[in-house]
Amino acid sequence: MTIGSILTDMVKIFIKYWDVFVLQGIMYTLLLAAIAVLCGTVIGALLAFGRMSRFKVLRAIIIAFVEVMRGTPALLQLYVGYFLVPMLIPDMNTMPSQLMAFICVAVALTFNTAAYVSEIIRSGIEAVDKGQTEAARSLGLNNSTTMVSIVLPQAVKNILPALGNEFITDIKQTSLASTFFVGELMTSYKTVVGITYNSLSTLFVIGVLYFIMNLILSKGLKFAEKRMKAHA
């Protein structure tokens, strides 16, 4: 088997099964990552504010949650989500199994992302110079106005780039969801290999697709970052 034959096989496989890769694989991958990042950011923000609140018990619970999510493998968390979510919501068992798996995986990924995002947001807020808060408070502004008008707008500049990286991480992480055949890009690899029996070439095809997705994303992020710095 030569490099040339792998390349021609890759092209052939892509042309024949592009709908499985693109329409199904990439679409589900992006959908899963987008759900995880969007919902994860909302939950992560709540966790971050909870962690900075003055309620000790709440703080302790959130710290424990974040440490557990960061200290266990994502695949394990997906498995837990896969079995735990249908147990908590029994109605889900009436759904088509692929949809159910997709929701379970999305929930698990969301909470995984939320843990990481909460740390990103917390460190982004804490990185804002304390003097900014002190100056605002010394003028008689209350805590929440200070947060909303002074601290958060500056924290966003620290947070957004790291959040973009989290999106890239999530796109790669969705490949773990293929364990449950939810239809994302890695699942389409399994589907196509089942027909062609050509593992290496198919792997290279989806590898290239993952790479292109993340390349576009990271370039876009860099551009956005530059724009933001220019306005600082």
Partner: peptide
Amino acid sequence: NIARQKMGMVFQQFNLFN
């Protein structure tokens, strides 16, 4: 907060809102 409105403070590091 009401008292601070009547007390202006100037810092060593200026602390203008960036």
